[in-house]
Design a protein around this nucleic acid. Structure first.
Lengths: 343, 343
DNA sequence: CTCCCGTGTGGTAACGTTTTCATAGAGGTA
DNA sequence: TACCTCTATGAAAACGTTACCACACGGGAG
């Protein structure tokens, strides 16, 4: 690989001048510039980013830590982030933490050594106090899918509102006995979705029954088991609101195996709006989160922090959107074949 | 951030000694080592990878270029690669090329500037000659999902064999008029799958009819349209072998909308084994590719090239596996659908 | 006694950039 | 003429490591 010195030698100038041409900084004569550029071309020179990073202390690299890229909620977040990063000349380093705090910490430390310019944490399990404590020695951090009150960027969607809309929809479909398969207890968003569920029941004057809530962990198999448990506890069940789509899909499977008809016997609503939700049978009503936008916005926030040096921390809350499909439309469930929206 | 100099000063030794402790290279006295280690701890020192990379010319970073992380075939490949990379102390830089040759080239160049130690190309559209031509000036490259004959690592699964098994399965189910929704023409794997399809028909003594093949591009909507076209051309259709699962899922949707029963009227088989395939209705028979393993093996190959300096290029071919589900089993297809509960 | 080798340590030149400072000519102004 | 400013350029010091070389000490072999 040719270096800046080779270019300088070939063009008959000093490395300083080549550097100035490269960065468009300082004065450089028109004709020398052309000479330099042609040397660059003929040597097929590409500046070494590592060397550049060492002196500028910027790597144009952003670390993205998420639980598991295999989980269909995350790829779109990543895509949003990567697209936006690429536009701005940044690269993304991907890390899978498996919802494991320790692994998250390891990755954070690796990223710090790697001198990334920023970090995006999706669905982190790290405590707010820990995050705030490391923020001082870290490049800017954006937390997605979790609201951090203090000195840190965060992006989330309004889980309470989304869950409230989902449960409200089930009520509007005539369901009165509505179960909830919740997310993991430590998860803030899971708790918020539960809260939205309770709030909707409250406002409809329906008492909250603890036995109608089964704890899950966002995985498909758990959703299936939870649905079975729910049916065991309350055979009269009319609707299930699941804290995410994967569990809802597991629930659909259980219902089918137990010969319940969806939505006629039991209506089901999920959460997240993963691509798969549209193609299960019956197509799953779900609360769509703006995942792509979340990744995109995260990069924008980091960019503002890094390049514009904007110190104010932003807490962005995006709106989730209830997308009604067949799994919950009891009124018009048989005749109305193509009511679902296509994007 | 503390540097190696700070550590050296605090421990009362030279930077060389600290470096030796850090890398476990050369002689260093037991007690000095402890003194250095405790200085490292008390300063919370972390070696700067950028500086290290500049001199060692190794970044412990691997670039992974794929078409679109949002496409459910890829996350598992990425996960396999990332897990294996993490074990070995490497990081992954993720790039989405959108099946766009130009974007692939841009990313390759960026990765080269970034001095990655290796590159994984998944489903690249770049020509073999181009790849071979850049290989000389590049870090080691592994091509996944494409066999490169020449001087380059490659990992693929046997597409002909997989497609042959899929089509053979449809024949075994009694299908005689079997359509094929193919992948993009430029794609080698797509052509191979077509070849396996033809071969199976051949051996069963069934003539190959060009009108039973509709060209697709691996996307769901195309699969849907292609299925419609296939039904228009040949209403007697008994089976469809799709070159990937997404198109198969699109086909299922079309068949449902056109009131064909799957698998009784038309049996459907997909390819890839994406997670979603299990949860559509009816569950999709598919040729499962060992995606996780492909990513994993790719890293192993790169690792051998980088650290062990093994020069021989390997062409690994993994076995795909036909996973039979309801979308193609014509014998026992009805019972489940009509067993709904009445109360 | 001398030589050599194993051990332990420090000094310093890389690595490929950017950045800061110095220099110098050209042209304008007082 | 003397001085300043603008333009154009080069030299050299960073950036934080590793790697190479030099040196010193002790002890065993000859």
């Amino acid at each position: 690989m040719a270096t800046i010195k080779d270019v300088a030698k070939l063009a008959g100038v000093s490395v300083s001048t080549v550097s100035r041409v490269l960065n468009g900084s300082g004065y450089v004569d028109k004709t020398t510039e052309e000479r330099v550029l042609s040397s660059i071309r003929s040597l097929n020179y590409q500046p070494n980013r590592i060397a550049r990073s060492l002196v500028t202390r910027k790597t144009k690299t952003i670390g993205l830590i998420l639980p598991d890229i295999t989980n269909p909620f995350f790829p779109e977040v990543v895509r949003g982030a990567e697209d936006e990063a690429h536009k701005r000349g940044y690269n993304i380093i991907l890390c899978n933490s498996d919802w494991d705090e320790e692994k998250e910490q390891v990755y954070l430390s690796v990223l710090q050594q790697q001198c990334v310019d920023g970090v995006i944490l999706v669905g982190t399990k790290l405590s707010e106090s820990y995050l705030v404590s490391i923020a001082a020695t870290f490049p800017p951090i954006v937390v997605i899918d979790r609201t951090i009150a203090l000195d840190m960027h965060s992006i989330s969607s309004n889980n309470i509102q989304g869950a409230y809309a989902a449960t409200g929809h089930l009520l509007a479909q005539g369901c009165r006995i509505i179960g909830h398969i919740s997310g993991p207890e430590q998860s803030v968003s899971a708790r918020q979705r539960m809260q939205g569920y309770r709030q909707a029941l409250d406002e409809a004057g329906i008492p909250f029954l603890p036995e109608l809530v089964v704890g899950g962990d966002y995985r498909m198999t758990t959703g299936k088991a939870a649905a079975a448990e729910l049916l065991r506890r309350s055979p009269q069940l009319e609707g299930i609101f699941c804290a995410n789509d994967l569990m809802a899909i597991g629930a659909l499977e259980q219902l089918r195996e137990a010969s319940f008809r969806v939505p006629r016997d039991v209506a089901v609503v999920g959460y997240d709006g993963i691509a798969m939700s549209r193609y299960v049978y019956p197509p799953l009503t779900t609360v769509v989160q703006p995942t792509y936008r979340m990744g995109e916005r995260a990069i924008q926030l980091l960019f503002d922090s890094i390049e514009r040096n904007q110190p104010e921390f932003q807490h962005i809350e995006l709106e989730p959107l209830l997308e009604i499909r067949k799994s919950s439309t009891r009124r018009a469930c048989d005749e109305n074949a193509s009511r679902s929206r296509h994007r």
